[in-house]
């Protein structure tokens, strides 16, 4: 078993919180993990990504080779497209459609979203909206994690255990809202996946 995941977003959006949950779930399962992160200059509002590799066999490279990622998980729609050269032909893109506009030449949404939705295997969702609906606007990354779960070779139960462990420190209320957000994302992805069968 091997899953290569590219996490994409903008510096400050907290993509590493998603990586932390996946990493913990994979570690508890005894899998090998490599997770290359971006620290430094780009964290100041620039494009950031993290290469997360999980495998039952030893992993050599910290970087995912081009054309080999199984999933691009993006918390921002334009950033989802930036890493397409890394996606394998049968790979999935799971992306939030809420734009993060901090540049003057951010593309028109009417042009951007159709391009994202035209990708052959894609799950799009408004994770920010779903997060507020589930009671915590700041849990949009957990919505995204839910939406990506069917493609990660880790079970929802393993993910939920990891979420619980990570947020425990902040109290049972925080655990619950994050689990709630997670489940709403998971639901969307399952529907989308069934529709594509």
């Amino acid at each position: 078993m091997k899953t290569d995941i590219i996490l994409a977003g903008v510096g400050g959006q907290g993509i590493l919180s998603i990586a932390t949950v996946i990493g913990l779930a994979a570690m508890k399962k005894g899998l090998n993990i490599k997770q290359a992160e971006v620290h430094g200059m780009s964290q100041r509002g620039g494009a950031v990504q993290s290469n997360l590799r999980i495998s039952s066999k030893p992993i050599s490279s910290d970087l995912i080779p081009e054309g080999q990622a199984d999933v691009i998980l993006s918390v921002e729609p334009m950033e989802a497209l930036r890493y397409l050269p890394f996606l394998r032909p049968e790979g999935w893109v799971v992306t939030n459609i809420r734009p993060f506009r901090n540049i003057p030449d951010y593309p028109d949404m009417e042009a951007l979203i159709p391009q994202v939705e035209a990708l052959p295997r894609v799950v799009t969702l408004d994770a920010d909206q779903m997060a507020s609906d589930s009671g915590n606007a700041r849990s949009s990354n957990m919505v995204m994690l839910g939406a990506a779960t069917p493609f990660l070779n880790l079970s929802p139960q393993e993910m939920e255990e990891a979420i619980t462990e990570i947020f425990q420190r902040k109290g049972p209320g925080v655990v619950q809202t994050n689990l709630c957000a997670y489940r709403s994302g998971l639901e969307i992805a399952r529907k989308r996946q069934e529709a594509s069968r």
Binding site: E66, G67, A69, L81, L87
Partner: peptide, 20 residues
């Protein structure tokens, strides 16, 4: 032999670091 996915679509704009 090398392998690569789809090219980056031209609609993708650069996003350099910026002041918070």
């Amino acid at each position: 032999p090398s392998q690569t996915g789809q090219a980056v679509p031209p609609i993708v704009a650069n996003r350099p670091p910026a002041f918070c």
